[in-house]
């Protein structure tokens, strides 16, 4: 598989208030490859370095040691920064703080306008991006009148219109209600499947991570677990050791199994859980 983002033995620390105050390493030697077209979720407790990992992808942060490569371009080289930002788009946590214009379609056009694209082409891209996230009928709305989930979809459309190969989302659902969360997750999944856009999503909701092809768990600035969701979440002990909880569906079947009922314990989603419980009850 072709790699789109490569972390090569990366370390990073934030600057302290003064020279004598040196903060510990936030990222402490991470080597990781993100494959083109994949959907990877990054999990970890607060302070595990997951947000920092996201910000290393498009040169917001530069590694103290090691290298971050985006399609082979080193983020620490000044001349690469703009090229990298054309390849990797970023969606942040707070939808209010990333919308620039007072009208939805103008905001989506902001990125392509910065790239100096022809007006007709921008129009085409904006319409296409808004349709892809299901916000086309809101194209003339004012952002502050939208719900959180809708604003976040507008932010995603803004990145889509730049036609980046990869979208990095830094806890995009943390400030949303459950409906908004579902909207955003469904949009991201669809873009990954239908358009082959690589997705790197930082989250602290296990139910969201379950939907990815790959789950990376960080702890103390290191990769703690890395694998497909089923492998990662059935490793209950390890998950709990780094301060996370397994998805509710997994926890339930595990508890049932512990109390002596014979049931599958590698379930991840609600549907699988229902199926497993029915099977354990002898009802297909």
């Amino acid at each position: 598989m072709e790699r789109i983002i490569e972390y090569q033995d990366v370390t990073f620390r934030y600057e302290g208030d003064d020279e004598n105050h040196v903060l510990p390493l936030t990222i402490n030697g991470i080597t990781l490859n993100i494959e083109k077209g994949s959907f990877a979720a990054v999990l970890g407790r607060n302070g595990s370095g997951k947000s920092t990992l996201a910000k290393l992808t498009n040169a917001i942060h530069l590694p103290e040691d090691g290298r971050v490569l985006v399609e082979g371009l080193d983020t620490s080289e000044e001349k690469n920064v703009e090229l990298i930002r054309r390849k990797v788009g970023m969606v942040f946590q707070n939808p209010d703080n990333q919308i620039v214009a007072t009208i939805v379609e103008d905001d989506v056009a902001f990125g392509p306008e910065n790239l100096g694209i022809e007006p007709d082409e921008i129009r085409r891209r904006v319409d296409d991006a808004l349709k892809a996230v299901g916000m086309y009928e809101f194209r003339l709305a004012e952002p502050h009148k939208l719900s959180g989930g809708q604003k976040q979809r507008v932010a995603i459309a803004g990145i889509l219109a730049m036609q980046t190969d990869c979208i990095v989302l830094d806890e995009p659902t943390a400030m949303l209600d459950p409906i908004g969360r579902r909207e955003v997750l469904a949009t991201v999944q669809r873009l990954n499947r239908e358009r082959g856009i690589t997705v790197l999503m930082i989250t602290h909701f296990m139910e969201e991570a379950v939907q990815a092809d790959r789950v990376i768990v960080l702890d103390h600035g290191k990769v703690f677990l890395d694998g497909c969701p089923r492998d990662v979440f059935t490793n209950t002990q390890a998950i709990e050791r780094c301060g996370l909880t397994v998805p509710q569906a997994t926890a339930l079947t595990r508890a049932l199994a512990d109390s002596g009922i014979s049931i599958r314990t590698d379930v991840l989603t609600e549907e699988e859980c229902v199926e497993a419980v029915l099977k354990a009850c002898g009802k297909e």
Binding site: N58, E82, G111, M162
Partner: peptide, 8 residues
């Protein structure tokens, strides 16, 4: 940050 990320 968000504006810079969108190549402004």
């Amino acid at each position: 940050f968000a504006m810079e990320c969108r190549c402004y």
